[in-house]
Amino acid sequence: MGEELKVIVFALGQEEYGIEVDKVRTIERMSPITRVPKTAAFIKGVINLRGVVVPVIDLRGRFGLDETEPTENSRIIVVAVDELEVGFIVDSANDVIDIDSDTIESPPEIVGGIKAKYLRGIAKLSEGRLLIMLNLSEVLNKSEIIQLEQLEV
């Protein structure tokens, strides 16, 4: 029996993903986003989160998936990792569950089109549900963004 992890579950397309609760500052409904020019395409801009300006990225775009128009269910999950505070746009966020860290297995090379390095592992839940755990520091890795920007230019 490993340690218990509290995880926020959100959806991107058909897959379910998890982020540890202690990394999540807040979950917000979609709010007006101010575009920031000359940034990577998946950086949607900045929002006013109760007086603090927070950048928002589209997680679909970040993972190279097709971006979709936000819906009624879309949410912004604001995470805080190593002094970085960033909001993720996700299709929906609707659950908090406990998982056993022992059930997390290292991910295969590519899951749902997402490179393995962005993933911490895959947790098997009951009834065959699979939960993809994100490796936040890789997702927020800035040096890679700089590379991406250079490619675009």
Partner: peptide, 27 residues
């Protein structure tokens, strides 16, 4: 004056952001 945060640094032509009376962020 508000900073854009540590994630967005050195955005060309933009020195920061501010929050307007209607709650929107203006660069």
């Amino acid at each position: 004056l508000k900073s854009l945060g540590k994630y967005l640094t050195n955005v060309y032509g933009i020195s920061g952001a501010t929050i307007l009376g209607d709650g929107y962020v203006a660069l």
